[in-house]
């Protein structure tokens, strides 16, 4: 754990008058699984989206794998190394599952179709959905779609995976199949940043849990410490509300 793979320094982000990120600094190391939680509007998704520049931050500095996010060319370089999984899956509905997973490989990585397909089928097998490779996304359940989305992100061989509330749009019985895939990924040593309220996943896989509120990092620590003995009053109130459910 020498050099941080993601280095966020004093980042500020405004949406009009709203101060979405207020002087956020954070270092994430290779192989870490960081879970970010906090009430809605706390800036956790915004922070995640700043890491691959889907949101442009106003001041501060973010370095990903040694590349400072600034110019347009840099951004595409960084995005090739950073996979992202969205709450709404965002699979391409006009392409088959297989083509969803091969498209960026062919277009961005310039892999040959046969090579891209072999990689895709391998990953679809890994997420347990290889028999649906010729189906279209809308023919799949939410859990299946999200697993395809994970395979699609992994196909680019990312060094970092970002998950933006990956289970929030899923029916309860489908959450586990997605979390299982994420757990397996964490065990393989993938660097992961996960915005999620899944306490079970955080306890099982997270090396660090971060609690955010009003655009600031309020508290961070190991999952057991943060969940069982939070230091900050704000964290206690939030956890008491979430854990009641």
């Amino acid at each position: 754990m020498a050099e941080a793979i993601i280095k966020i320094e004093n980042v500020h982000k405004y949406f009009g008058q709203v101060h979405a990120l207020d002087d956020v600094s954070l270092e994430i190391y290779k192989g870490e699984v960081v879970v970010i939680l906090g009430p809605s509007g706390s800036g956790k998704s915004t922070l995640l989206r700043c890491i691959n520049h889907l949101e442009v931050y106003n001041t501060g500095k973010i370095t990903v794998d040694g590349i400072i996010l600034k110019s347009a060319q840099n951004i595409n370089l960084v995005r090739q190394e950073v996979g992202m999984v969205f709450q709404q899956f965002n699979l391409f509905p006009h392409l088959t599952v297989l083509d969803n997973v091969t498209l960026a490989q062919r277009v961005v990585r310039k892999r040959k179709p046969e090579e891209a397909e072999a990689i895709a089928l391998n990953l679809l097998t890994k997420v347990g959905i290889e028999e649906k490779s010729q189906a279209y996304p809308l023919q799949l359940s939410g859990g299946q779609q999200q697993r395809v989305a994970i395979a699609r992100a992994l196909a680019m061989n990312p060094k970092i995976m970002l998950f933006d509330e990956p289970t929030s749009a899923l029916d309860p019985e489908m959450i586990k199949e997605v979390l299982d895939v994420m757990l397996a990924l964490a065990k393989e040593g993938m660097t992961m940043v996960v915005v999620s309220h899944e306490m079970g996943f955080a306890r099982a896989a997270a090396s660090r849990v971060i609690f955010m509120d009003e655009g600031r990092i309020v508290e961070q620590g190991q999952p057991d410490q943060l969940f069982d003995a939070p230091k900050e009053e704000r964290t206690k109130i939030f956890l008491s509300k979430v854990l009641q459910i």
Binding site: N76, Q80, F86, Q88, F92, A104, V107, A153
Partner: peptide
């Protein structure tokens, strides 16, 4: 939907 272009761009597409 906006998510479509975000998904494409997040994989490094121009």
């Amino acid at each position: 939907p906006r998510g479509q272009i975000e998904a494409a761009r997040s994989q490094g597409m121009t």
